[in-house]
Design a protein around this nucleic acid. Structure first.
Length: 569
DNA sequence: GCCGTTTTCGGCCCGACTGTTTTCAGTCG
């Protein structure tokens, strides 16, 4: 699929245009098209062939033509033009904090800066500081930006973001005079990875609170400290922004700082259309504030029903909210059991009994034990003899449990040769079977997965794309074809709730739902606490617009096994 | 460059902070 490739190209064109000082809205247009392509589950080439490009948001005639040009000739004139005119290394530097397109262009034009090495040189010899509008402090900030840039600035997992935000909220709540405080931004939207942490608070003495904030023990550097806004970098490199607003603006500020940017633009447009103005301070008619305290009220006055933060990405939620047709998103309390958990039989530290006890404590009706199959040597995969022993143990545990059912499952490897790692004879005896790829990430993954789904005993495909958020792209795979096969065979696809996986991701989940595919949420726990990751699974499911009915482990125990594909034919 | 319950042309969100300046430009979110 060329989707990602094209997205990259359009982002690159946007960078170049920005550098050249083009109309900012043209730049935004290219970025929007790039975003659409990044999030598209379907193959852009297929859409192009069917002449359906104009149905995509942010893609009009000009960009559609460019896409077609690239898909048919392998080239794009516009892209060649801009990359020829501007060295790639120059555009990369736009990622440096405090160094924007204007300054970079100035340095390029006046001092001949072409790469990072040049830039450092003109900083050191003082020539950059002498340019118009520049000065020592500005240059100093760019220098700090370079340091940050060179260390690498990865996004953090949702789990780390949550922990970090909690620590800061606790610190601020203790001493500063704050009436309300909450994380906002992408953390509140539960995005799979968080770039920096936004926190919103109310209080009378903004400057004092900000000052206290900058003294947070983990602070490494203070980026800004005003009367209503402060910004710090923690020792681990995480940036945290704090905004203080008046209580009467709390709802508007919460709405604004939760974002996403694209979602907010839509809302402000609607406000404008109604002759109103929406800002982080409130909703205004002329100069008069008509709402601001309460977030929900703002949505309602604009004619929308309340949109949950997880949906606020401008992926069609605004249109549905206008028509009062938003899905009723799944909640953690709808979950009746965990469908992916490892025990000490393979590579977990938790015994079956411990998992069962904790699952019961969580209020579950069932838990599926899914240890690795025999070929997974790295994970102490379970061979036949030990599998039988595990079944005995599960029977014993079940006898002791009050309410909870421990189910016999397995996470069976789909081997590089396409075979399933247990015989059908064994699979048949299991309550539920998960199949997954752990080897041969580039070898016919799509075909192997599709073949696995043809097996009537394979109920679930685990972490279907194989990506690790922090470190790995994922398998070489056509996820759309995999989803088509899942829909055709009635195989469930997993939403793996392990914070570094969250796979399927939000965008793929939404596509899967539209195709009628059922989702199984499993934590992939390798210890007791891992079962608590379910909340990240739920957050991601909500980002994928899933409702209770789309997720199989919202079924009560008596219906769960009945809904297997083998029992439906 | 996109898009339309307005407007097929003319909009396209808007404010805080900083640093450079004496009224504003650049960057960021």
């Amino acid at each position: 699929m060329k989707n990602k490739e094209l997205a990259e190209i359009f982002n690159r064109i946007a960078d170049a245009l920005e550098f050249q000082g083009a109309n900012v809205f043209r730049v935004i247009a290219y970025r929007k098209a790039a975003r659409t392509l990044e999030e598209l589950a379907e193959d852009i080439a297929v859409l192009n062939k069917q002449k359906r490009l104009d149905s995509l948001p942010g893609i009009g005639r000009a960009i559609a033509e460019k896409i077609n040009e690239y898909l048919t000739t392998g080239k794009m004139k516009k892209y060649d033009e801009v990359t020829k005119a501007i060295p790639a290394q120059l555009l990369n530097m736009l990622d440096i904090q405090n160094l924007g397109p204007k300054t970079l262009a100035l340095a390029h034009k006046e001092l001949g800066v072409k790469d990072l090495k040049n830039l450092k040189k003109v900083i050191e010899d003082g020539s950059l500081a002498k340019l118009p509008q520049m000065g020592n402090k500005k240059v100093e900030n760019i220098k700090k930006g370079i340091e940050f840039y060179e260390r690498g600035h990865e996004r953090m997992s949702l789990e780390i973001a949550e922990e970090t935000a909690n620590r800061i909220v606790e610190y601020l709540s203790k001493k500063a005079k704050i009436t309300k405080i909450t994380p906002a931004g992408s953390l509140r939207r539960c995005k799979e990875s968080v770039g920096d942490i936004d926190i919103l608070a109310t209080g009378k003495q903004g400057a004092k609170i900000i000052k206290h904030f900058t003294r947070f023990p983990e602070t490494k550097r203070i980026l800004a400290a005003g009367a209503t806004k402060g910004s710090i970098i923690l020792k681990g490199g995480i940036q945290v922004d704090l905004r203080i607003v008046d209580p009467k603006s709390y709802g508007a500020a919460l709405q604004y700082f939760t974002g996403s940017k694209a979602h907010n633009v839509r809302l402000r447009n609607i406000a404008k259309f109604k002759g109103l103005k929406l800002s982080e301070y409130g909703l205004f008619r002329d100069k008069k504030m008509i709402s601001g305290k309460n977030e929900q009220e703002i949505y309602n006055i604009l004619g929308l029903i309340y949109i949950p933060p997880e949906m606020r990405e401008d992926r069609g939620e605004v249109e549905l909210a206008l028509k009062n047709e938003l899905p009723r998103l799944i909640e953690l309390k709808n979950i009746k059991g965990d469908l992916h958990a490892h025990s000490t039989y393979s590579d977990s530290t938790a015994t079956i009994k411990q998992l069962a006890d904790f699952a019961q404590k969580l209020g579950y009706e069932y838990i599926l034990i899914t240890d690795h199959s025999k070929s997974a040597r790295y994970a102490h995969g379970v061979e036949q003899k030990r599998l039988y022993r595990q079944w005995e143990e599960i029977d014993n545990v079940n006898n002791k449990m009050k309410r909870l059912h421990v189910l016999k499952g397995a996470e069976v490897d789909i081997l590089p040769n396409g075979k399933i790692d247990y015989s059908d004879k064994i699979l048949k005896k299991l309550d539920l079977v998960i199949a997954s790829i752990h080897q041969g990430f580039t070898r016919n993954v799509t075909e192997r997965m599709c073949a696995a789904m043809d097996n009537p005993y394979v109920d679930i495909i685990a972490h279907p794309t194989g990506r690790l958020i922090s470190s790995r792209e994922g398998y070489t795979i056509d996820i759309y074809r995999v989803m088509e096969k899942a829909a055709a065979t009635g195989t469930w696809l997993e939403l793996n709730a392990y914070p570094d996986r969250l796979d399927l991701n939000d965008v793929n989940l939404k596509a899967a739902k539209e195709m009628g595919i059922k989702i199984a949420i499993g934590t992939d726990a390798h210890n007791i606490e891992g079962l608590l990751w379910m909340r990240f699974g739920i957050a991601t499911a909500r980002r994928g617009w899933l409702e209770s009915k789309d997720v199989v482990n919202t079924h009560p125990f008596k219906n769960l096994l009945r809904s297997r594909k083998i029992n439906k034919k």
